[in-house]
Each structure stands twice: as structure tokens, then as C-alpha cells.
Amino acid sequence: MTEASLVDWLFVSAVSGLGPLRIGQLLEHMDVSELRQRLEHEPKSLPIALADPQIAVAWRKVDAALAWQQQASHHYLVCRDTQFYPPLLQQIPDPPPVLFLKGCPEALLRPAVAMVGSRAASHGGLSLAFQLAADLDSVGLVVVSGMAAGIDGAAHKGALSRSGQTVAVLGTGVEQIYPKRHRQLYEDIQQYGAVISEFWPSVTAFAGNFPKRNRIISGLALGTLVVEARRRSGSLISARTAMEQGREVFAVPGSVLGGDHQGCHDLIKNGAKLVEALADIVEELSPLLQCHLQALPSYVPLQTEHNSQLPFKTLLASVGYETTPLDVVVEQSGITLDLVLEQLLELELQGWVAAVPGGYVRLKRN
């Protein structure tokens, strides 16, 4: 891509009142260079109602973007006609004309699965998101999420525990860390993956921008996995946009008590693929990977331990995937309290269970 073409894309993106959908419609009739020239010199010749394109303001934004790119070697401007623009994102109705990227642009070209869910996720939901993300990474699938609190953060951390190639799509500019507690996560993602946004780097958090970025999360991926979501969860926006984009939708089921999984259950009722383990996702996506991305990296099914090899089988069977009170564990296992506490500690150290307020939860299946 030439410097002139980059400037064209930036200018078109910077014009006030001209969104990605309208830009895409105009580009069906002209190339980006012609669109830039007509916006700058003949805006009334375009078949759109553009009250005031604010040319001077647009040029200042272009200069700011170019200056930002020059600030660091890991700053990239990814336009729709560059080699790093994701092919799957090109296919959605309103692809962003420009992506601001910090990190490794190559991460945008690998096959990906989006993972979203509750910001106030349960301990079990966070653990499952972490493990599924690590498993997806192990078979060559990039994990895409929004770097929000809860499931998003756990998904990025799971991918970082393996190869580290994960993509965070921000609802702010790429120089804004939101939430602030994810500062280290934000830095870690840039080492092997990418932090991206369609918004100018200095754009701060604004509620209306977060739903907009969800189309990019789902648009980058072959499918979107919802790990834990209530019926009114914002993460369901990503699932809906995935459906509208013709992508696969996956959902993890959970307890019918408390409502934490109602959104996932609704998705499954409406045709989403029920997911219990990595194999459920790989099975569904393999044909798509073969058709659109040539091949899936060699997949070795996860090895599960035989029941006879499980540590403390009787006790483990007494701990559920929802919070199980200690007295219930003692009653169901038939083991003395002292021995229960000793074995639970060992199971915690091995990663089978976790102590949570009100009791224990089981983290792994047998």
C-alpha cells in the first residue's frame, strides 16, 4: 500500500458523519482515492446527505494518526487494502476502513474464535474460559475478545498461557486502557498478539462505542463462543452480530438456578452449538477451516483421565460445578471432616477444585 492510499483511507475514516456502512456502500461505485477527492472538493456530488464534512478537522486527524504510527515500531495502521487486513472482516456489511493496531499484525491473519461473556462471571465461568482459550490456542486458533472484565479477561489470559497470540478489540482508542485494572494484560497481549480499535487512539470510554466494536469481535472470527451470560448480557450483542454475519455461534450451558446462564440457554434453544469442551468447537469449525482457510493446524484430542486414575474419586464426585457447601461435601462423600479438608487441599493444589465463598467448586471434568 502506498503512502497516498493510506492517507486516502485515513481521510475517509476521519470525515464526520460518514460511518463504515456508508463508506462501504460508496466504495461499491468508486475507489478510495476518488472518494477522498470528492469528499474534499465535491461533497455535494456524492449521493449522500453530508451537512458539513469539516475538511480541516479531518486533515488534522489524518496528521495525528500518521504521527501516532511513527511513535513506535509496534504501531500499525491497517487499512482495507493492506496485507494485514483480516479477510473475514472484509466480508461483514460494515468493515472498519482503518484499524489502529499495537502489537503483531500477523495475529489478524490466523483463524480465530471469539470468546465473550459476563463481566461479573462466576469462579467456574472464569476458569472454564481460561481453559477453553488455552485449548483453542493449542490447536492454532487465535482467541479474540474485548479485554473487558470477567470472561473477556480470562479468555485473553488463557491464550497468553500458551502461545500468547490473542487479539483484543477495544471500545476505546488503542492508547486508552479500559478497565484500568487490565494494564498488565494490555501490555502482555501486545507481545505476541494485538490490541486493535477502529477509533482514533485518543478516544476515551463512551458507552455507545462498546456495542459498535462487537461487530469487529465477531467479524474477525469463524465463530463466537459465549461462556456465561445472563439474558440481558451485553455479550449477547456479539452473538447476535455473529449470526447476522453468517458465523457460527457456540454457548456453554450451566445451572438453571440463579440466571447466570439464561442467555447461553436461550442461544442454544435458538440453534447455537452446545459446548462442553474444545472438541465441540473443532468439530463444528473444521469444514469452515478447510474451505476458507485451507487447513486447521494438526489437532490432537485432549487426553482425559480415566475415572480409576482420578484423585480422591469419592470426594471429587461430591463437589459440583456450582458452589457446594463444605457440610454437603462431607455428607455426600461419607468422609470425616478432617480427611475432607486434607483431600480438598490436595485437590486445590492439583487444580481440580477451588475454594470460593460458601464452599468449593469443581474446575475440571473427568
Score class of each variant (00 low, 15 high):
residue 4 A to T: 14
residue 4 A to I: 12
residue 4 A to Y: 07
residue 6 L to P: 04
residue 12 V to E: 05
residue 17 G to F: 11
residue 17 G to Q: 13
residue 21 L to N: 10
residue 22 R to H: 12
residue 28 E to F: 00
residue 34 E to T: 13
residue 37 Q to P: 01
residue 40 E to K: 00
residue 49 A to C: 06
residue 52 D to W: 06
residue 56 A to D: 15
residue 56 A to S: 15
residue 59 W to P: 09
residue 67 A to F: 00
residue 74 H to N: 14
residue 74 H to D: 15
residue 79 C to R: 02
residue 79 C to Q: 10
residue 79 C to P: 05
residue 81 D to M: 02
residue 90 Q to E: 13
residue 94 D to H: 11
residue 95 P to H: 10
residue 95 P to C: 07
residue 102 K to D: 14
residue 102 K to Y: 10
residue 104 C to N: 15
residue 104 C to S: 14
residue 105 P to Y: 09
residue 115 M to I: 13
residue 116 V to R: 02
residue 118 S to L: 07
residue 125 G to K: 03
residue 128 L to I: 06
residue 134 A to S: 14
residue 143 V to Y: 12
residue 144 V to E: 11
residue 145 S to T: 08
residue 148 A to D: 09
residue 150 G to K: 00
residue 151 I to D: 01
residue 151 I to F: 03
residue 155 A to N: 04
residue 157 K to D: 04
residue 163 S to M: 02
residue 166 T to N: 06
residue 169 V to H: 05
residue 173 G to E: 10
residue 175 E to R: 04
residue 175 E to N: 13
residue 175 E to T: 09
residue 176 Q to P: 08
residue 181 R to W: 11
residue 181 R to C: 14
residue 184 Q to N: 12
residue 186 Y to G: 03
residue 190 Q to T: 11
residue 191 Q to D: 06
residue 192 Y to E: 13
residue 192 Y to H: 13
residue 200 W to D: 10
residue 200 W to F: 14
residue 202 S to C: 12
residue 209 N to Y: 12
residue 212 K to H: 12
residue 212 K to R: 12
residue 216 I to K: 05
residue 222 L to K: 00
residue 223 G to T: 04
residue 227 V to T: 03
residue 236 L to R: 00
residue 241 T to D: 09
residue 250 F to M: 01
residue 254 G to T: 07
residue 257 L to E: 09
residue 258 G to E: 02
residue 260 D to G: 09
residue 261 H to C: 06
residue 262 Q to A: 08
residue 265 H to N: 02
residue 272 A to M: 03
residue 275 V to Q: 01
residue 281 I to Q: 03
residue 282 V to T: 04
residue 292 H to V: 11
residue 297 P to N: 05
residue 297 P to I: 07
residue 297 P to R: 05
residue 302 L to F: 02
residue 311 P to C: 07
residue 313 K to H: 06
residue 314 T to H: 05
residue 316 L to G: 03
residue 317 A to Y: 00
residue 320 G to K: 00
residue 324 T to Y: 00
residue 325 P to T: 07
residue 346 E to W: 10
residue 353 V to N: 02
residue 356 V to C: 04
residue 357 P to F: 00
residue 361 V to M: 07
residue 361 V to F: 06
residue 365 R to V: 12
residue 366 N to F: 10
